[in-house]
């Protein structure tokens, strides 16, 4: 949390440096911008890695259903793995 707050503060400070640039402090500014840019980049990288671990694979089970074996009722003709779960009407 502290890291995030610090990072947010530092990143928020970057536009202020841009304001200084308008005043013509070019040499020092370039160096400062470079250093802050590197730190900012590093912090952004750290923040972006503050993610949850990759979740486990989800087992997917697909059920295809139909109210009857009539094509017009959405029955998909199959020749294998048919499991009738209740009385079939037609």
């Amino acid at each position: 949390m502290h890291l995030l707050q610090f990072a947010a503060g530092l990143l928020a400070a970057t536009p202020a440096v841009a304001e200084v640039h308008k005043c013509g402090a070019d040499g020092e500014l370039a160096e400062l911008q470079g250093r802050i840019g590197n730190v900012g980049s590093r912090l952004r990288s750290l923040i972006s890695r503050q993610t949850y671990p990759v979740p486990p694979t989800v087992d997917l089970v697909v059920h295809v259903t139909a109210p009857t074996t009539r094509r017009e009722d959405g029955y998909l003709s199959v020749s294998f793995h048919v499991r009738v779960t209740a009385t079939t009407v037609s």
């Binding site: 989800v58 139909a66 793995h81 499991r83 009738v84 779960t85």
Partner: peptide, 18 residues
């Protein structure tokens, strides 16, 4: 997010309640 799908376990159900 990843999914593990085994097509051979595809299930078909015929039931008027669907």
């Amino acid at each position: 997010l990843t999914f593990n799908y085994d097509e051979s376990k595809l299930q078909y159900h015929v039931d008027p309640r669907w």
